[in-house]
């Protein structure tokens, strides 16, 4: 019991690691990944494999999350729309929130929990069992072979998943709107496409999803690589990675919202 408790304390200490130093470490990792890619060290086969795995892992939760998100958005938009008696605006009301904020945010949080955490656990296990050193002993660059492929796979997956989740959430929203408010899905779609929403709103969300992907991929790789201390250490790393990812995602959401407004 006392072991576990001191472990939890260590985790909190590493999670609340001076933010600037953490940002510095993430930047260094990003630079190393960039260098590996630029110098052609990226292992293409590992990239395809990582992409496939992150895709398969993400699909079920992205589908579930997107459908629920659409439903939630309609239920929340409903009273506002009803207050003005403007059913034609339901698509707009649920749409802008989904495309610009909630779609990218929730997809990122879920993928951070599923793929990011999994990535940390895998890398952490490899570090703890010296598999990473074994790579170096074979004169294979771990960044090009392991880190860069995973990084790129996570960023790509999140971008595609957000695009997919946006569409699915809006379909879900249309049918929840029909069930709850009696708004014909056709009216909903008209509300979406009547000109109040444009490609700009979709792009806004997609730009965010790329930034979120970078944040999630970097922090999950960083904490995986920084794992020490056996099985409990892997748990602590995963914990720290998801917390830092979540905080980073919201923080970046704030800045990106204004930067590209």
């Amino acid at each position: 019991m006392s072991d576990a408790e001191s472990g939890a304390r260590d985790e909190a200490r590493s999670a609340s690691e001076a933010p600037l130093r953490l940002a510095g470490r993430l930047a260094l990792l990003l630079a190393a990944i960039g260098r590996a890619v630029a110098e052609g060290e990226l292992d293409r086969r590992m990239f395809v494999k990582s992409l496939y795995e992150t895709g398969v892992r993400s699909l079920p939760i992205v589908v579930l999350t997107a459908l629920f998100t659409g439903g939630i958005m309609v239920v929340q938009a409903a009273p506002i729309v009803e207050r003005y008696g403007a059913h034609g605006l339901l698509g707009w009301g649920a749409g802008f929130g989904t495309l610009r904020e909630i779609g990218p945010l929730l997809t990122a949080l879920m993928i951070s929990g599923r793929v990011g955490a999994n990535n940390t656990a895998e890398l952490g296990t490899m570090v703890v069992t010296e598999q990473l050193d074994a790579l170096r002993a074979l004169a294979i660059d771990p960044v090009g072979f392991l880190i860069a492929p995973r990084f790129l796979a996570i960023v790509t997956t999140l971008l595609l998943a957000t695009l997919f989740a946006d569409a699915l959430a809006l379909v879900g929203a249309a049918y929840v709107g029909a069930a709850l408010l009696g708004v014909d899905p056709a009216v909903f779609y008209t509300g979406l496409t009547s000109g109040l929403l444009g490609f700009g709103d979709v792009a806004h969300g997609l730009v965010k999803s790329v930034v979120f992907g970078v944040v999630i991929a970097l922090s999950s790789c960083h904490y995986g690589l920084a794992t020490t201390g056996g099985a409990p250490g892997v748990g602590r790393s995963v914990n720290a990675a998801v917390v830092v990812s979540a905080a980073g995602v919201f923080l970046c959401d704030f800045f990106v919202s204004f930067l590209i407004a």
């Binding site: 598999q131 002993a137 074979l138």
Partner: peptide, 20 residues
Amino acid sequence: ELASVRKRCALVFQHATLFD
């Protein structure tokens, strides 16, 4: 630069460290 050393000088770890 160590990469060239590691190609000439292999290390077998105490635990097998195979990629699972």
